[in-house]
Every structure is written in structure tokens, then in C-alpha cells.
Design a protein around this nucleic acid. Structure first.
Lengths: 206, 206
DNA sequence: GCGCCCGGGATAGAATTTCTATACCGTCAT
DNA sequence: ATGACGGTATAGAAATTCTATCCCGGGCGC
């Protein structure tokens, strides 16, 4: 009895490469491989490759490449809402069920203008043990670090604007005194995930 | 600017490993790693590993393992319909848009009792060129070949039953004369995909 | 009661996929 | 004219996925 041969594209389900769909969804939402890469914490080359491969599997282009950014083709426009909603529903269901995903680490920048000791402040907020398991802070307020994928969110003074990003004004926890307000900036694709919501709850006033 | 470090599980989207979700969906639908493997054209060990990894990422079990087959846990039951529907929607959208996925090959068994020359018959049905691009026939009516993943569908005389599989009675194309009816058996996860539908249209009476 | 079959589990290593690093390109702003 | 920007291509590294093989416990047939 012959088992399936690797290396040829057999019909194994009705789905194309799923990681490539994830890259497509993020790139379609941002209309930018560079920004999708930042959100997914990979390099822009990785996203470019994934999309190129997906287009080959499907047999048509999904994007029209511009000098700065992308346009969706008709096929791309037809697919993006469906893929986006599917991922949204899966993600929401997992958020409901998976109270914690051990091993997932939120890399959070905290502006040096807000505290000189981000790790100390974090420890003060969460008490001993606990939250370090899901968050890792570093002293930066450079949105460029967020865009490049070096961090996943950044707490910084100032209101923005932050085009293409999700920014939320927070009333800061008293531990930040004398600072009272700041903005938590993250990727739209991460804004609703559990770790970001927990961070928001920790850093803000209850 | 520090790019993301490989090897640690960073928050990169709200989704766990997508291939593992695919394995979960198939295993959940069949309540069997073995049958899921058959549908996905991988080995049962691959499915077992994928699910085990997914359970580690999520932090809880999805299945209760039995000596013969599986039960879904409460978490597994909560997730399966959502994941299943999400994949269904994605798949349907892709079926709508992707009129052909170059490179996808349907491995079809045709019973030697229906024809001694399955390739010749296939050529007669499709005319020169064309369909070979998506279908590859071999002379077998062994449902075990389907179950093991060696083929994706089988055309055979007889009505079944075929528990856990999708079976459809066909009025055969006159090229099969004197045989007039047969059953096309495939996996439920493949039954609606384009290649299977095209095969059904080719083999049956218009 | 025993032996065999079955489906899941574990592990080592192979194969494939995904990613990074690097250099390149064309366009745009200065 | 030049530098910055975002996409592209490629080689090779790293990670993921898979296969092969052996093992296990439970169920079933004899």
C-alpha cells in the first residue's frame, strides 16, 4: 500500500498553504509587505516570498505591486474579507477557550520618558511571579521598533497620529506617577489578542 | 534595530500553528488520527504529533485518547465547529475564485471491474490534453487505499456502506458500458473540492 | 485465556517549508 | 544627482513537518 509521495502537490484538503494565507491577510489589510512583516514579526522578504508562492498555487496574482506599497487585484479583493473574517472567528474562539497560551511573549516597549526602570515598574504592577510569563519589556518609545517587528507594542507619551496602527489613550496606573496619560500603540492584528489586552489592563487604571 | 529572534514563541498574530489547526479539524471531524491522516495524505504519526504540539501551545488537551479512536474534550468541542466553519468558508471562497489550482493532482482509483484501461477511458472522457493536468488514475477499488491516503477517491461498483466516508451513486458515462452505475467514494473533507467535483462530472452522465 | 489486530504514542532522522541576510531594482522626494 | 523607500531574488540557515520504525494497551475473535 503506497503512502503519499512527498514533493508533489496532492489534493489533501481544500486549503492552500495556510501560513501563506496568514501572510496574505496581513498584507492585504496593510497594503504593504513591510508592515505585514512588522505585524507578523518576520522580514519583508519572507512575506514577499509567501505571497509569491500563494499566487503560484492559486494561479493568479493577489496584489498589484506599486513602488510604495500594494493594491489588491480583483481576486485579492474577493478573498480578503472572507479570509480576514475566518481568521477573526478562529482567533476569537481561541481567545475564548485558551485562557493563556504558555510561551507566548508580548514584547512591549515602554518609553524612557515614562519610567527609567520598566522592569521594576512591571514587577510592581504584577506582584511577584505571574505576568513575566507573558510580557517582556524594554526601554524604547521608537515606533520604528514596532514597525520593524522588534517589539509588538509600545507605551509612549503623545497622541500620534499613528497611521495604520492601533493607538489607544490610557489613563496610566499610579505607579507611573507623575505621568498620568500615555498611548499604547500596537498592530491592529494584535490589538484584540489576550496578551495585549492584559498589558492594557495592567498599565492602565482599573 | 533588532529583528525578531527565531526560536521563541513571539506574539505574532492571534493564531496558533495553522497546519496544526487543520490537523485538529480533520481529526475532530473523524474522531480518529488514522482517518484524518488518510484524508490529509500524511501518516497518522504526523497528525498525532501536530495535535500534541497544538495542545502544548494552547495549554490544554483537545482530545481524550481511547484505545480505538478519540473523544473531543470540552475545549475541543467548543473549538471544532468554529474552526470547521472557518475552513469551510475559506475553502468555498477559494473554490469560487480559484478556477484551477495548477499542480493539484487528484489520485483516483478506478475499479478494474469497471474498466481494464482506466487511463484509456479517462483519455476518452476528456479528449486530448486538459484533464490529465488534475487527475491521475490507477486501477484499484480497495477502499483501504483511500483510508491509508494512497488515493483521494475511488470509483467502484457496490453501494457500501462506507462509514465516515462520502459515497455518491453515479450513473456512469457510456464510456463505461456495459457498466451503468458505480459509487464514487471519497473523504468528506474532499467531497466539495473542485477536483473531486470535476471528476464526478467527468465520470457520471451529464 | 491467549494471540492477534487496531489505533495512538514516541523518537530519530529525512524532507520540506519558512525564514534571514544580502544585494538588487525602480520610484519618489529632496 | 542622491538617498530613502518598499518590493524582488537568491543562497543558505533554521524551523517545521513528515516518515519509518518500534512500542503500548485495549478490544476482539477464536
Amino acid at each position: 500500500m503506497q503512502l503519499p509521495v512527498r514533493g508533489i502537490a496532492v489534493v489533501s484538503h481544500r486549503l492552500p498553504p495556510l501560513n501563506a494565507l496568514r501572510a496574505f491577510e496581513a498584507a492585504g489589510r496593510h497594503l504593504s509587505f513591510k508592515r505585514a512583516a512588522g505585524e507578523l514579526s518576520v522580514t519583508p522578504g519572507a512575506v514577499s516570498q509567501q505571497i509569491r508562492h500563494l499566487e503560484q498555487v492559486l494561479g493568479f496574482p493577489l496584489f498589484q505591486r506599486l513602488p510604495r506599497g500594494l493594491l489588491l487585484t480583483g481576486h485579492g479583493e474577493a478573498l480578503l474579507p472572507v479570509i480576514g473574517e475566518a481568521f477573526e472567528r478562529v482567533s476569537a474562539a481561541l481567545e475564548e477557550v485558551a485562557t493563556a497560551m504558555p510561551g507566548r511573549i508580548l514584547r512591549l516597549g515602554i518609553s524612557p520618558r515614562l519610567t527609567r526602570d520598566p522592569e521594576g515598574l512591571l514587577a510592581a504592577l504584577v506582584g511577584p511571579g505571574g505576568a513575566e510569563a507573558f510580557i517582556r519589556v524594554q526601554p524604547t518609545d521608537d515606533v520604528g521598533d514596532l514597525l520593524s517587528g522588534a517589539i509588538n507594542a509600545v507605551l509612549r507619551p503623545g497622541r500620534g497620529p499613528y497611521p495604520g496602527l492601533q493607538a489607544e489613550a490610557l489613563d496610566l496606573h499610579p505607579a507611573f506617577a507623575p505621568h498620568r496619560r500615555a498611548t499604547l500603540v500596537t498592530w491592529p492584528g494584535l490589538a484584540q489578542c489576550r496578551e495585549v489586552r492584559r498589558a492594557r489592563a495592567l498599565l492602565g487604571q482599573a
